[in-house]
């Protein structure tokens, strides 16, 4: 069986903990072949190696630069070089990369380097059969979630970026054989660099794209997210925002749900004071259950909802929060 390369999410190794999207990729990789995790950085950080093996990694390539360069200090180009060298060496059945700004850029560069096809933002990947010459078949949600498309790569090594929540991470003990690998990074790959970085304060809430429940606020909050945040905390949700709220400076862009922000697909999505413009729907309409609170009974968001309340979110949410807190005792 062929190897399937899985790029370990670079955010993973901050505290040596492997991110959930990476574990999801390992689970998907096991459907297609033998998962090999590609870990850029120091493998002795935390328990990364143990976790990767526990979720099916047969091999773990621990990659460092031959001249001692810290690859993580640069942008995507060196990471794409590392993967291209591994693709050439191992001839994998596919390369799986977490979707997101960085992942997609690595995938794009890797596709050019290896003369391969790429598919981004897959929400499912299944093994191929004879009719696809064995290449995996991906599912994507396109046109703001209004179409589902199945596609596959027909040339080179399938390079696929996969969205968070595309599979339930399943434990499966792999051999987890660590192979230390030094690669040569070209000078041109080092030309763009991060010269300053200011970490965002952790909110303590679940990660937006990974959360089972997302509670969002829009223009209707009038800039006061207190009720939205309290409600989110009562039901253990991540907090999101519409573009209107972000453009008004009420919430940072990292919280934006929609076409130019995050696409989320949680079990439950609660939209508060959000009209439901196409820009927002693109980011949330594949959610399993949708609930909305809005003053305007003609807001388009109500066309999507499983349950809606026509009313003032600043009254409805605090009352609901209080009742939930009471029920939980």
């Amino acid at each position: 069986m062929s190897e399937v390369l899985v790029l370990v999410d670079s955010n993973s190794l901050v505290d040596g903990k492997v991110s959930k999207p990476t574990l999801e990729l390992l689970t998907i990789a096991r459907r297609i072949g033998e998962p090999s995790a590609v870990l850029i950085g120091d493998p002795s950080t935390g328990s990364a190696v143990e976790t990767l093996a526990a979720y099916g990694a047969e091999k773990i390539y621990a990659v460092s630069a031959s001249d001692g360069t810290d690859i993580t200090g640069y942008l995507v180009a060196p990471k794409a070089e590392v993967l291209a060298q591994l693709v050439e060496r191992t001839g994998p059945a596919a390369v799986l990369i977490p979707s997101g700004g960085e992942g997609k850029e690595i995938a794009g560069r890797l596709a050019v380097k290896t003369d391969s096809g790429l598919i981004t933002d897959a929400v499912d990947v299944q093994p191929g059969d004879d009719s696809t010459r064995g290449t995996p078949v991906t599912t994507q949600s396109v046109f703001a979630g209004s179409y589902t498309v199945r596609a596959r790569v027909t040339h080179g090594t399938p390079i696929i970026t996969v969205k968070p929540n595309s599979a339930a991470p399943a434990q499966h003990q792999g051999a987890g054989a660590v192979e230390e690998l030094t690669v040569t990074i070209s000078e041109s790959a080092k030309t763009a660099k991060i010269t300053a970085s200011e970490p965002r304060k952790a909110s303590g809430r679940p990660e937006l794209t990974e959360a089972a429940i997302v509670v969002s606020g829009g223009r209707g909050t009038g800039g006061d997210f207190t009720a939205v945040e309290a409600f989110a905390d009562a039901i253990g949700a991540a907090v999101g925002a519409s573009r209107a709220a972000v453009d008004s400076g009420w919430m940072p862009h990292a919280f934006q749900v929609g076409q130019t922000g995050k696409t989320v697909s949680p079990q439950l999505y609660v939209a508060n004071g959000i009209s439901g413009a196409i820009q927002h729907r693109a980011g949330m309409q594949t959610s399993k259950t949708i609930v909305a609170v809005n003053k305007d009974d003609e807001a388009p968001i109500f066309e999507l909802v499983d349950f809606g309340v026509v009313g003032d979110l600043q009254k409805v949410l605090p009352a609901a929060t209080e009742e939930i807190t009471k029920r939980k005792g």
Binding site: A111, V149, R150, A151, T154, E303
Partner: peptide
């Protein structure tokens, strides 16, 4: 380098 196998309109909610 990629081919679309099929596309389906998502049933309206």
């Amino acid at each position: 380098y990629t081919v679309v196998e099929d596309s389906q309109a998502r049933p309206p909610r």
